[in-house]
Amino acid sequence: MRHISTIAARELRSLFVSPVAYVVMSLFSVLAGLFFVLGVAAFNSRVMQLRQFQATDMLATLNLNDHLIGYFFDSMSVVLLFLVPGVTMGLFSSEKSNGTQELLLTSPLTIWDIVLGKFTAGALFVTILVGLVAVFPGILFAYGDPEVGKTASGLLGVLLVCWTYVAIGCFASSITRSQVVGFLITFVLLLFLLLLPAIADLGVAGDAPQLGAALRWLSTGDHFQGLMRGLVDTSDMVYFAVIIGSFLLLTKAAVESVRWR
């Protein structure tokens, strides 16, 4: 435990003395703000439209959670898919190119200390990013009355999805010495994760319904949507734990593999 926090603290410090952390945080704030303003504008014009047509029953179903915050969280999870690889790309690959891997592996640390320390650093950093996301629904609370529970569980969804990105990024970074390659592998894996539901639908509609269902389960989509609807389901928590755990296990194997060669 002590070692995990030592590794994580060092990693975070390095992230914050390099421009990466600030570039990611500022770019993300701008993008998040933009998406939020556009979302509010779209919601507004929708309300205006429905009022004009006096569609009161439709107006009654319109609410901030489903028609604004949900979309916003959804787009944030996609924006973060582009940014998180930039944060995680150097976690392991730079240790190899710096030669510091040799220091870590000859210190009285276990491989898990290293892997969990690095994952913790990445996860804490994206938690800050998700904190930035939380600011925007906060504004809505000042002017409207979204549901607290639903908003909170949606935010938890964004957080868990981002932690999944970090675990995948750790793995990608651990199998290369180049940060650029680490970025690209992470990015492609995350895009694949995003496309999984579509691929799964092909299977469900075609000859392989079981495979389709399995792929659907593997994608973050359904689990994320459940949380977005305000359902904090144990099975979804298990899903995130399994995916994150599996990628950390792969990362551990990749770090350890220096010793097999």
């Binding site: 390095s14 003395v17 390099s18 710096n98 030669g99 510091t100 891997q101 040799e102 220091l103 000859t106």
Partner: peptide, 12 residues
């Protein structure tokens, strides 16, 4: 242990 290239973090 001092490896051939010192294992340093340049940003620290």
């Amino acid at each position: 242990y001092l490896p051939e290239t010192p294992p340093l973090y340049p940003e620290m």
